[in-house]
Design a protein around this nucleic acid. Sequence first.
DNA 1: AATCGTTCCTGATAGC
DNA 2: TGCTATCAGGAACGAT
Length: 273
Amino acid sequence: MPELPEVETICQDLRKKIIGRRIIKLKILEPKLIKNPTAQVFIEEVTNRKFEEVRRRGKYLIFCLNSGKVLVIHLKLTGVLLYLLSSVPLTKQTRIIFKLDNDYSLRFLDRRKFGALYLVSSLAEIAAMANLGPEPLQKEFTFDSFYQRMKNKKRKIKSILLDQGFVAGLGNIYVNEVLYQTKVHPVRITTSIKKAEASRLYQGIRDTLRKAIAARGTSVNTYRNLSGERGKYGFALKVYGFEGKRCHKCGGKIERMDLEGRGTYFCPKCQKL
DNA sequence: AATCGTTCCTGATAGC
DNA sequence: TGCTATCAGGAACGAT
């Protein structure tokens, strides 16, 4: 599942490849993925426009076009963006193709069709984006506000870290890893979290995200970068997907529980309730 | 306010 | 072997 480090990796690669490029043809094989205007209007407004800027906000990719409109893509669970020579044969999971003015295409693949594309005049038109919390690697994400906002809620720590309105960009893999690293049980209630623990969480979030970006993301599943390569952070994972395996800190067994529909991995000895 | 269940979807896998 | 049921989960949504 692409989370902040994966989307950031794609974003960095996109900047190098598509800035200044014109979209000369757009093929939508799966119109359902276009959430904002109709697929027809989307095609009309994207075709012949140039990519001027690419940015990331949370898990959203933001493409500013030279028309002033903004294309937004969320990869959800299985979305993949590939920059390929247009002559490369299409694969089965290809859903949308942006043919560029240089023999290359930007292709959106999505095995499970959960992805979402929008074309808007302002990001505020996308409600979920308007409600996004701070960017964890930016200045706006301070320890004081992180701790205060946590204290103002009465929720499970794992739920709140996954909440995009609390902090933008974390997903299930990195939240499991951060909680394990910092020895905080996923079900701990935010009001009971001590300042020292919150501090470890805050640092852990930033540290983990930075390292994962440096490793170009995690490819547990379908994630691939723009060139179709896997991220290397999967080798650094310590709990996610390790049910029944030994905890490398205490030698105990990693357990898995269901928390609000998400696979939740933890070491019951290191992460006490 | 917080949580729960449901929906979207397909491929991998477990079980028979 | 080959079928079918189950599971994975980001985020929106409605209900409790």
